[in-house]
Design a binder for these strands. Sequence first.
DNA 1: AATGCAAGTAAGTAACCACTTGCATTCAGC
DNA 2: GCTGAATGCAAGTGGTTACTTACTTGCATT
Lengths: 204, 204
Amino acid sequence: MDVRESLLKAAVAVYADAGVRGATTRRIAQEAGVNEVTLFRHFKTKDELLDAALAHFARNVTTLDLPADPVDPHAELVAWCKTHHRELYKIRALIRRSMGEYEQHPGHCQHGMQASVRIAAELSRYLLRLKARRLAAPDFDERVATNMLMGAIFADAMGRDTMPERYPYSMRDAIDQYVTLLLRAIGATASAPAALTTSTRKGR
Amino acid sequence: MDVRESLLKAAVAVYADAGVRGATTRRIAQEAGVNEVTLFRHFKTKDELLDAALAHFARNVTTLDLPADPVDPHAELVAWCKTHHRELYKIRALIRRSMGEYEQHPGHCQHGMQASVRIAAELSRYLLRLKARRLAAPDFDERVATNMLMGAIFADAMGRDTMPERYPYSMRDAIDQYVTLLLRAIGATASAPAALTTSTRKGR
DNA sequence: AATGCAAGTAAGTAACCACTTGCATTCAGC
DNA sequence: GCTGAATGCAAGTGGTTACTTACTTGCATT
């Protein structure tokens, strides 16, 4: 296996758990299964390694495409949002960590922010298409609607495990409900929300 | 001025900027204008100080009450959400930091989470009142709607300064738009959204 | 004047950390 | 079999950190 690659992967994992200062070169090297000195032979400084690792990780963040020709907005949005939520939830520790380091190391999370901007733009364009095809009302701003839906999904993915009191309903229901509410908000014909099932809390 | 009080305030400020490991006892003492040894005379360990400081801070987090007798949902919600957003935005660095430290120090951010749960419950009860008085449709779940609106506001407050591309519209407009969308989503009669003004980005 | 308390000062300890150096080992390609 | 590049290992350097110790200073009450 490639040493450099495993160092990048280990760096992301340790960083997500412990942050910049907590991610010691010793621990990263151990996690990667290589000697600490080897780490410094591949990367001049710890900071250079972290930056490369987060950039590498963010480069591999992708999303589904939303259809160019919307047919069933509810089904299409639910599928897309489910994937997006699942991905966010998987890397929630990393996201929280890099947000927390923003004040002191804005460069590190810049990569992640760019991914987020790309994804928001994809959703925005889709909502614009809905408007153009008269599948939604003409009088809403698609950037605001995008931020509303993505904000709800983001907050859900970040808060579900830390504030279970606020999220007693299941992940499966959550996305469906957010999408249903948004479609009603933007005047897209949507059926009434389905009844909620009980929450299925999973440990991590 | 009370030494203990100024230590608590300084601890929160330094913690927000630098996190648990970055908040050195030296720096906190300096920020509080007292000697480092004095810090240890008031608090046995650094961890005890940080915990006391964050608990003290969270205890002072309050919100407006939403009216027990809803009359004008749009106006009432906008006023409430504006305050909530302003408060979140003011302490965004602290929130990001304590979220980032969640994996390693869940106890520290527990205080903040509790405040968030309290605030969400207040909004939830208000939405329930709207339903009861037939000011909103009967077929939505108020917890989901609460998380949708609060999620949008939270994500806005956290992302506005770090991802200006996603938030080109002004803070002032933002809240109004989120509330308008939510009211339409829950079947409350709401006027069409107002036109957006251009963003007013403020440095910090 | 005597006492006590809260705070300051200076110095030190033990641990940890990023990063370096020197040397031994392995192993692929000629 | 030899060379060179990549890796491991042991040890060390200089800096930082939480926390301690021993002592001094200023101020208020008695």
